[in-house]
């Protein structure tokens, strides 16, 4: 860990001002909330901020109903509180299930909604400064391609980066079509969850839509779709406390035996929380049966590009999608 300046922000404006001089959203100035990613990475000298701004004092820790019938999660709401919130459990079960499938109770007690959105990859080469990594040091190269990449992404990859977004929460937020509420030097804006994270392309160090000085203030969940069912399935080597090899969040509504509405998002296989639009397209208006689920799963993984060790994820993700759809519709 390297020496840094530490300050506390009492208001969102103060936090924005403290960050506004930074050259990128995640360069020399960092906000710290739960600290479950940032502090670890600082200890590894992967994150080397000059300034750390503690935002735990900001009034962003409420869960509130929105006038539109949705739910607003303050950026500082703790993962454990969100997952166990009665309204979340009732109306946004996929989010509760996703959060509870991740990390450990201790980590969920600390980690926040906003922090989880900014959770950084678990790629082993990103986390060790002895190795080249375009995400950590732009232009240095990607050690994961041709290295130990069993855990890494097959969707949205580029020749510069195949790092997986490790979050479970974010997968559910994409399936729920949440919006990310942001405040910055030029005011407030909202970004759909599906567009918040960026593909690595040739700039894998740019991970989100956040600009310097911008801070996530809340995440807004839209009004739940009446009669819809939700399910989150996470597959991994061991039974608990491990990042997904493949996960699927499903929000689905049947009408007259046909699929009227379906949203599918994938975790563990993409460089960002992955919206499976092709699969949704295959299913809309069709009957909810095993054959159609498999067709959708094939469509979802059609563009997958495996690296040397992670080709198995393609078949695993297909099975994950089929089972998640099956379980969601069996409930229905």
């Amino acid at each position: 860990m390297e020496a840094f300046k530490f300050s506390r922000a009492a208001t969102v404006d103060q936090a924005v001002a403290a960050h506004a001089g930074a050259t990128t959203a995640i360069a020399e100035t960092r906000f710290v909330a739960g600290g479950t990613t940032l502090i670890d990475l600082m200890k590894l000298s992967v994150e080397r901020p000059k300034v750390v701004v503690d935002i735990n004092g900001l009034p962003l820790d409420k869960v509130e109903a929105t006038p539109e019938g949705g739910l607003r999660l303050g950026a500082l709401t703790r993962n454990a509180d969100v997952a166990n919130h009665d309204v979340v459990k009732r109306d946004y079960a996929v989010l509760s299930e996703a959060i509870l499938s991740g990390a450990s109770p201790q980590l969920r007690n600390m980690a926040t909604t906003g922090g989880n959105l900014l959770q950084r990859t678990r790629c082993p080469y990103f986390r060790d400064t002895a190795h080249a990594c375009n995400k950590r040091e732009p232009g240095s190269g990607c050690s994961a391609i041709g290295g130990h990449n069993r855990m890494l992404a097959v969707l949205g990859v580029s020749s510069d980066c195949i790092a997986t977004n490790p979050s479970d929460q974010n997968v559910a937020l994409v399936a729920l079509e949440a919006t990310i509420d942001i405040q910055g030097p030029s005011g407030k804006r909202s970004v759909p969850a599906g567009q918040f994270h960026l593909l690595p392309g040739t700039t894998p160090h740019r991970e989100t839509a956040l600009q310097p000085g911008e801070i996530i203030t809340s995440v807004t969940l839209p009004k739940p779709i009446a009669g819809s069912k939700q399910f989150y399935l996470k597959l991994r080597d061991r039974a608990a406390y491990e990042f997904a090899l493949s996960s699927t969040a499903v929000v689905i509504k049947l009408s007259g035996g046909k699929i009227e509405h379906v949203r599918i998002a994938l975790g563990g296989v993409g460089t960002k929380p992955w919206r499976a639009l092709e699969a949704e397209h295959e299913l809309t208006g069709k009957s909810a049966d095993a054959a159609n689920f498999r067709i959708a799963a094939e469509a979802a993984m059609r563009d997958a590009k495996p690296a040397s060790e992670n080709g198995y994820k393609i078949e695993l993700a297909k099975r994950c999608i089929v089972r998640a759809l099956t379980n969601a519709t069996v409930q229905a």
Binding site: G146, R238, E242, F243
Partner: peptide
């Protein structure tokens, strides 16, 4: 797992070297 390109035990931490949990 040793990375054949440099000899580093690349999964040298408890996220990447998987041991059983109580749930297992």
């Amino acid at each position: 797992i040793y990375d054949p390109r440099n000899g580093h035990a690349i999964n040298d931490n408890f996220a990447d070297y998987v041991v059983p949990t109580i749930a297992d």
